[in-house]
Design a protein around this nucleic acid. Structure first.
Lengths: 126, 126
DNA sequence: CGGCATCCAAAGCGATACTG
DNA sequence: CAGTATCGCTTTGGATGCCG
């Protein structure tokens, strides 16, 4: 299994923050989770469109370890797993919103794939 | 020369923003530049402490291409080059400040190397 | 259904040497 | 002084297959 190692020391506060919610998958993952109370693994994977199981599982695990998201397993048949933001994770939403608003001001809809720009991120976390 | 390719399409506004100011070096670089009117190449390199010329030159070039920083060359002897934030680049400072404030609330000074946490980023861009 | 393990390819980056 | 060129290592991540 691939697992990213978090460095233990940083030079900059922004580096620390982006180590938690930056990278290839986590920003989008958090934006998607930020719109729902909770989501199942497969539901997240569908909305991420092009992510592999390995990358999704690793991202989810890292975010759990940082206390940003919570995992709840229901041992039904078939098994059901729900992910949701923790209280700490919710404090990221205004931060993501600030970043998103800057991006919207400095980009155009045609730079985006799928429905994410207009239907989701324009009103992110209001 | 190594040069990162910017993808042309994004799934998420946050991805777009982090493509501009995220990554290993650019957050710290922008934080450092954000405190001065302009800085010389060598001055930036000293404050970045552990960056290689290749990585620094590439980061500076990318940020120029995105109109975040500006390069001015003075053909003195020896040559002098000054970098500074553009107007667009300055609009990033409140965004970086928001991220930094979240990080400060969720980390401790001992997680940081050097003087950056206490002496610089605590009062970032005030 | 919700993952994890393995293999492999590509990207990112550092060290070194060199240049106008 | 302010970079650029090249090499090779390390990290990242996609594809595939398997499992409880």
């Amino acid at each position: 299994m691939y697992q990213r190692k978090l460095p233990k020391e940083y030079y900059c506060t922004v580096d620390y923050a982006l180590d938690i919610f930056g990278g290839k998958w986590k920003p989008r993952l958090l934006c998607i989770l930020g719109h729902k109370k909770s989501m199942r693994y497969g539901e997240i994977k569908d909305q991420m469109e092009n992510i592999s199981d390995a990358a999704l599982a690793d991202s989810l695990k890292e975010l759990q370890q940082q206390d940003i998201i919570e995992r709840k397993q229901y041992n039904e048949m078939p098994i059901r797993v729900e992910y949701s933001l923790t209280n700490k994770g919710k404090t990221l939403l205004p931060v993501l919103n600030t970043i998103s608003n800057w991006a919207i001001k400095n980009s155009t809809p045609d730079m985006y794939k799928g429905m994410h720009f207009n239907d989701v991120h324009k009103d992110l976390f209001k």
